[in-house]
């Protein structure tokens, strides 16, 4: 294939390497409330990616000189675990890439959170990548959005991360690591499906104007699927309690025993 950077083909008979079509996502699993000490938390398993996000705040700003008397400031941290991948980008410690992703995540939440409701505070959001297979920044921001919603931080909507890109001359969604590295272009987006806003737009490689437009259409289409999972995860947390209780009531037990309730 003349347009491919590498020698192998990434799309064979209209199917991608893992058998997906251009608009298919990898299997997606989300859960909220996994960290008890955080105000809000979430885990996202997106294909082979696995990300944990925690949100702490709003709370007093430290260091104090960063206080903004008009709005809350957001501090983001993105980190990859040293064991998250077999390749070099999973190395330990803060690096250029981690700083960049933390910065763009911060801007996403500055535009999604109603920061003016909490003057003189900060909101810490931390994203830890435990396992990576391409598209970790969108997985991380998707997890962080869930954690924000779980923490009860007022937002205009829930951001959804989604990556699109060009492989073998064709626009596809949700690139995995092989497609990301060997493909021609990669365009991570964070969108708000409710309002149709784009909160993050990055691109690596070359795309024509039409390809970008096509990519954005694909991203919004896929973001609706991501959103469905986010809604499900957030609702499940509360519906689980309801199920527990109604199950107990059916047995005539009448409530959870006090021994099972943790007292601070």
């Amino acid at each position: 294939m003349s347009t491919s950077v590498g020698t192998e083909k990434l799309i064979v008979n209209g199917k991608r390497l893992d058998g997906r079509s251009a608009s298919d996502l990898r299997p997606l699993k989300m859960e909220v409330g996994i960290l008890k000490k955080a105000n809000g938390s979430a885990m996202v398993e997106w294909g082979k990616n696995k990300v944990i996000a925690g949100v702490y705040g709003p709370r007093e700003v430290l260091p104090k000189h960063m206080t903004n008397p008009h709005k809350a400031i957001i501090k983001a941290r993105y980190a990859m675990a040293p064991f998250c991948s077999l390749e070099e980008h999973g190395r330990m410690g803060p690096n250029r890439r981690a700083h960049e992703i933390a910065k763009v995540a911060k801007h996403v939440f500055e535009n999604a959170v109603l920061v003016d409701q909490f003057p003189k505070t900060m909101i810490n959001v931390t994203m830890e990548v435990l396992q990576s297979d391409g598209g970790t920044r969108v997985s991380a921001i998707t997890a962080a959005s869930l954690a924000m919603a779980d923490a009860g931080i007022p937002m205009r909507g829930i951001p959804c991360g989604i990556a699109v890109g060009k492989i073998d001359g064709q626009m596809v969604v949700d690139l995995d690591k092989a497609e990301d590295n060997k493909g021609q272009s990669d365009m991570p987006l964070v969108v708000m499906p409710d309002t149709g806003e784009i909160l993050l737009f990055q691109m690596d490689g070359m795309l024509s104007k039409d390809e970008v437009a096509r990519g954005i259409d694909l991203a919004f289409e896929a973001a609706n699927k991501v959103r469905e999972k986010q809604v499900e995860a957030l609702k499940t947390k509360y519906e689980k309690v309801e199920l527990e209780i109604n199950g107990e009531n059916a047995g005539g037990d009448g409530g959870k025993p006090a021994s099972e309730i943790t007292v601070i």
Partner: peptide
Amino acid sequence: ALAASAILKICHEAHVAGLTDRMKVFLEQK
């Protein structure tokens, strides 16, 4: 301890209908 666990139970189950009845049963049992 009973009052504390009852308060935490209310927080845990506040969004499910029939809270008052459940709490009454819980408090009577305990």
